[in-house]
């Protein structure tokens, strides 16, 4: 190991550290999957509303148990309030990734994010 380390010059360490920093900075890309652009709200499986994730907005959806409140902010969306007993869809918090979904089953409401329409929007995986 030592003879190899001797081959490194001071600047080499700098370049390697910068490279490591670049790799580290790019790491989140691996987990992020594109940009969500649309919040699709469904009741009983039928689309109630498609809200663009560009402007803040609130939407009330009435289901069998009561009113589910969907909240949209630029780039994200969540179920703000739901009459369901266990509150799973509310506890999920903000959804940011395409195809992420929050289902309020008791009240028959679901909120799903969609990626860009058109180009590549229809893929849920890439293969070669």
């Amino acid at each position: 190991m030592r003879p190899w380390l001797a081959l490194l010059r001071p600047g080499d360490w700098l370049v390697m550290l910068a490279g490591l920093a670049a790799v580290g900075a790019s790491a989140p890309l691996l987990w992020r999957s594109g940009v969500a652009e649309l919040a699709v709200v469904k009741r009983d499986g039928r689309v109630v509303a498609e809200l663009p994730l560009t402007a803040p907005r609130k939407l009330d959806v009435v289901g069998p148990l009561g009113t589910t409140v969907i909240e949209v902010r630029p780039g994200r969306a969540r179920v703000a309030r739901d009459p369901g007993p266990r509150q799973y869809c509310v506890l999920q918090g903000w959804l940011t990734r395409p195809n992420a979904i929050a289902i309020c089953a008791p009240n028959h409401v679901s909120l799903q994010l969609a990626g860009p329409r058109g180009e590549g929007g229809g893929y849920d995986s890439l293969n070669y």
């Binding site: 390697m16 490279g19 490591l20 670049a22 790799v23 790019s26 790491a27 890309l29 691996l30 992020r32 999957s33 594109g34 940009v35 180009e119 590549g120 893929y123 890439l126 070669y128």
Partner: peptide, 19 residues
């Protein structure tokens, strides 16, 4: 070849390999 931003998910792997 792959006109989709999904390619960039692989950036960390490629960058790591490059390093």
């Amino acid at each position: 070849l792959v006109p989709h931003d999904g390619v960039f998910h692989l950036v960390p792997i490629f960058a790591g390999a490059a390093l």
